[in-house]
Design a protein around this nucleic acid. Structure first.
Lengths: 144, 144
DNA sequence: GAGAAACGTGATACTTAGTCTCACTGAGAC
DNA sequence: GTCTCAGTGAGACTAAGTATCACGTTTCTC
């Protein structure tokens, strides 16, 4: 069973109809290997309207199929998400995003909760840097 | 010396003029005890134009006088910042923001850098929860 | 002090990312 | 067949921020 079919079943199980525009958006989302913006999806789903693409993205986001990635400039991108709670490591040079499996601040949250008296319900954590292939190995000509 | 005067001197030292609209924006910023939006500043500085308020906010942000706070809904607010790199603890009930002095993920960054091969240059971390006075005395525990 | 250059300004148009509204469509229930 | 209702596209609208432009004010130079 393809990812598209699996997702369609998941939508139907939740009582949503799987219409041609929704299929088009989901297919476009699944084609994206890295992060994307809604504008990029709109380019790929010429058939579907703006509102529909935004609605479907919100739906997929609520279902946990895609997650939001906060870029270093403050803009929000989206990304297919296999797991539940996780964080991202964003390469500021090539834009590649890597998922971080385990939540590295779980201990910090416990400690902070005790120290501050807050009941901590959530957090947002993104790392920015240069991936292995973008790190210039002693500047072999050019660089950025 | 008041904060306003200190900031004015800081601006002049950087070669910026301290004009009446800028003074008005800075005064409005310093009046805010918690986080604020540019729209709120605009309400308070009726004299200064929209563009000027945005320009001054960007200027103060570049100077490190104010910092951005990412709210749970994805919107960006601003906040007077006394220190350099720090994180925020946002109460989702009353909206109060608390600064976290020491960067609690410094160790995580080092570990992650080694494990992933990334040269980590920055990160964004915000915590969300309910502050001591907003926690209902019954509901202890839970979490996301 | 005059004139020029630089800086800062408000008004306003524009951009981006997203939401809202509304008339319409098509599938399913009866 | 018709009623209902989720889903649709078009397009208006919103929020947050940027760009442009003509103009005013300061500062610099002579």
């Amino acid at each position: 069973m393809s990812d598209l079919e699996a997702l369609s079943l998941k939508l139907e199980a939740r009582g949503y109809r799987v219409t041609p525009p929704r299929r088009a958006v989901i297919a476009a989302v699944l084609q994206q290997s890295n992060h994307f913006t809604v504008e990029e999806l709109l380019q790929r789903c010429r058939g579907a309207g703006r509102a529909t693409v935004f609605r479907t993205v919100r739906l997929l986001s609520e279902m946990g199929v895609i997650c939001r990635v906060l870029m270093e400039d403050g803009s929000l991108h989206y990304r297919v998400s296999q797991r539940g709670h996780h964080h991202h490591l964003v390469c500021t040079a090539c834009g590649h995003v890597q998922d971080l499996d385990d939540c590295s601040v779980a201990g910090v949250v416990r400690e902070l909760s005790r120290a501050s008296g807050y009941e901590i319900e959530g957090h947002w954590l993104e790392f920015y840097g240069r991936c292995q292939s973008c790190r210039s190995p002693v500047a072999v000509g050019g660089g950025r």
